[in-house]
Write a protein that binds this DNA or RNA. Sequence first.
DNA 1: ATATAAGGTCAATCCCGTTGGCATAAGGTG
DNA 2: CACCTTATGCCAACGGGATTGACCTTATAT
Lengths: 235, 235
Amino acid sequence: MAKQVVPEAARQRRRPTRGGTVLSEEIIVRTALRVLREHGSTGLTARRLGAALGADPSTLYRYFAGMDDLARAIGDELMGRALDSWTATGDWRTDLRALGRAIHASYLAHPQAAVLTASRVTGRPREIAVDEAILGILRGAGLPDPVAVRVYHAFIDQSLAFAALDAGSLALADEARAGDEEMWHSTYARLPAESHPNIAATAHLLARHMPHSAYPVALEILLEHTAAHLSRPGA
Amino acid sequence: MAKQVVPEAARQRRRPTRGGTVLSEEIIVRTALRVLREHGSTGLTARRLGAALGADPSTLYRYFAGMDDLARAIGDELMGRALDSWTATGDWRTDLRALGRAIHASYLAHPQAAVLTASRVTGRPREIAVDEAILGILRGAGLPDPVAVRVYHAFIDQSLAFAALDAGSLALADEARAGDEEMWHSTYARLPAESHPNIAATAHLLARHMPHSAYPVALEILLEHTAAHLSRPGA
DNA sequence: ATATAAGGTCAATCCCGTTGGCATAAGGTG
DNA sequence: CACCTTATGCCAACGGGATTGACCTTATAT
């Protein structure tokens, strides 16, 4: 078995699996994303992924230290895709908004994968690249380092946290077909006005708003806050 | 086995388990919190919980439809504790700040449980009570319903999302003892300035800030935004 | 050509959630 | 107080999970 995983860069002898495919971290991660989409966020198992690759499950342990390590690689892939889909314009506000949306969108494009990975910091290369980009935007805009770090922290955590939450409800809707949208009509809309006057009074608005992500709103609020800091350099 | 779970209120014939304990939803949830704390977020298993209760694992299915249902009950318990620890003063800003912190703190008090539950909406009674309270604060402050709903949405999602994220790193630190704080020193502080100039320049600030939650900052930004809406009623 | 060992496979281990069948005692009824 | 019903506990078993140790095979370096 795998006493230690050989790093991707050092790999030399690639041998085809019984199924004929030649493995690589990239192929495994891509296949894992497909399996996740097809079988849901809890449906990624070593056996199933092995089958999808035409390989023995234990082969995965030649590439990743365990399913946990694989999950981190999947998260990094999503982060990388976000960064790839993003281009800088030089205007900090435009760039930060675009990057935030790219991250959020990249995770929501694979909700089942996002549920698995979005709430953990991976420390992998592409995540680090995103961190570098964010800090670059903020410092380039002229924010003093302490403020830049504070905003960076709120920005990245907010983006990841919302991605995880929103992916959760998306994945749930896909998997269980239940659709929480239903719940805002079924459960919340039926609460009696005596016990829950405020929910009752706003039930129609809730049903309209809750199925959508609050991330865009939170992002704009953060951008506004940042702009305020730039207009009064002393703060 | 359990064809259907008997609702807690309708329970009559309580029989002691082989271990002598008399079960109830409350006892099970409380024990589950203890097991989670002791064995980590993935350490809550039917067998282990059964052992902790002095009961057969299958007995749990007389109380909950499955481990998933149990997880939702645990989440609702945390939400209930948040609400219990909170008292309204009548000042919207004070009250909303306190409630947000109470929710965040309640989840972080049980990080392993929070990881399991914070990223899902349960639709259970105590969660609904919190929703009602938030809407009450905002509407009581004089916000028009559409704005109140928008702020409510951002507030509750932000609180839960950060709770999940922050609990993740807390639980990780507890479980693996790795301490991500370490990572901000070990991984990030060693990046060469040529490839990652912005991280390198702010490494000391990052190491100081990143181990703490960004939730308080994000909460204040949201409160500020809300206050702005109240001072110009037309917006 | 040959030797080395990377990287594949196989089989086994232990744990998981969940369920069907069964036993028993709690509580209602006379 | 005795009896009946059935809620609620226990047992045993099933299929599937991650992971690992031993083994085999073939790609590459010499």
